[in-house]
């Protein structure tokens, strides 16, 4: 079993730069070990392309252990491919059939312009964080954090939200290209903790204003984002975000 390999056909989006029109290119790749991750398979493809004197496929990747959120690939119609709760590096070729054609596209969103091939510019998410996704109070050194008692259930809930790695799968998946799950996670994580509550109202207003300004869509509660989120962030946090935003605006 360990040495099992498959032959696949790949339909990969190639785009020379932000202003290039872009197109799909088809490749055949033989003897792909089923134990390989999707990114390792992409490495094999690129080695083959380089050996043939062709330009390799540009794609983002960093930690390859499921935590950085860089590997933004839309595989066979789903963010990070056919498995749930994983990033592309944690997706394995054993989930694909021998002879299968696999379609690989970049994230598609107005707010995430394509840089090259499968690489997109996700700095819009950083812009939202810059607008308010931080606290400005001095919390002292690391040991001082423990001087503010926080109930375990509150700390756990905040951590559930803080799990968000900012990969953008929610935006890529949402039919409206909405970043609400991302913003909900960031707003909730801070609003749940006493250190973050001081600036909670200003924060949520600024982050939503930035999110709207950068060209993300609005949420229609389809719930697709939470299905594809590699970190399992619940849309219950979107309800919390709505609550925070309505509170900040209607009950200032």
């Amino acid at each position: 079993m360990a040495n099992k390999t498959i032959n696949i056909k790949l339909r990969v989006w190639r785009q020379n730069g932000p202003h290039d029109k872009g197109h799909f290119e088809e490749y055949e790749l033989n003897n792909v070990p089923t134990a390989a991750s999707f990114l390792e398979m992409m490495d094999l493809l690129n080695e083959k392309l380089i050996s043939e004197g062709k330009e390799p496929v540009a794609f983002d990747h960093d930690c390859r252990e499921g935590i950085c959120g860089a590997c933004s690939m839309y595989i066979n119609g789903r963010a990070h491919g056919p498995a749930t709760g994983v990033t592309t590096c944690q997706l394995h070729m054993r989930l694909f059939k021998d002879g299968e054609t696999i379609t690989v596209e970049p994230w598609r969103a107005k707010a995430f312009p394509v840089i090259k091939d499968l690489m997109v510019d996700r700095s819009a998410l950083d812009e939202i964080i810059k607008a308010g996704g931080y606290i400005s109070v001095n919390t002292g050194g690391a040991p001082d954090a423990n001087t503010i008692p926080i109930p375990k259930d509150v700390a756990s809930r905040a951590f559930d939200a803080a799990n968000c790695i900012g990969c953008g799968a929610c935006v890529a998946t949402c039919k409206n290209s909405s970043a609400m799950l991302f913003v909900a996670a960031k707003v909730s994580h801070l609003a749940l903790l006493p250190q973050g509550q001081v600036e909670a109202k200003e924060r949520v207003k600024k982050m939503i204003a930035k999110m709207d300004e950068l060209g993300f869509g609005s949420c229609t509660n389809t719930g697709a984002c939470e299905v594809e989120c590699p970190k399992g962030i619940s849309i219950a946090f979107i309800a919390k975000l709505n609550r925070e935003y309505l509170n900040a605006n209607l009950m200032p």
């Binding site: 872009g22 598609r108 107005k110 394509v114």
Partner: peptide
């Protein structure tokens, strides 16, 4: 919301199990 997808739309989407 329709225009928030950007200039190119996905060639393939599987939405059945998502929503």
């Amino acid at each position: 919301n329709y225009y928030k997808r950007g200039p190119v739309r996905y060639a393939m989407t599987v939405r059945r199990h998502q929503s």
